[in-house]
């Protein structure tokens, strides 16, 4: 399944933007189904967006399961670095 972010939000900057995307992807991740999230037309994401779109997934599934099923496509280096960095911050905080 492919979810194009811009079909649901105009930008990836606010908590609200993130909540909209989370509601679209969460069940797939929880069910162990792969979902491709396309950032076509998006050039940046903020921590607020990531805090609401992706980080809450960790409340219910492991980071390994997220990596296996959440596929980020049509993105750019800045966005990808932000996503990886944000997840690492949460995962490393738990393991400390």
């Amino acid at each position: 399944m492919v979810l194009v972010v811009r079909d649901f939000v105009n930008s990836c900057h606010t908590n609200h933007d993130g909540e909209v995307i989370y509601n679209q992807i969460a069940q797939s991740i929880f069910d162990g189904r792969q979902i491709f999230v396309s950032f076509r037309g998006v050039s940046s994401v903020t921590s607020s967006f990531l805090n609401s779109a992706f980080i809450p997934l960790l409340n219910k599934v492991s980071f390994s399961q997220i990596k296996a099923n959440l596929k980020i496509i049509d993105s750019n280096k800045a966005i990808n670095d932000s996503i990886v960095r944000r997840f690492k911050q949460e995962v490393e905080a738990v393991t400390m």
Partner: peptide, 10 residues
């Protein structure tokens, strides 16, 4: 960076 599309590699 120069603007380039890429997929995320976990």
């Amino acid at each position: 960076d120069i603007e380039e599309e890429e997929d995320l590699e976990w």
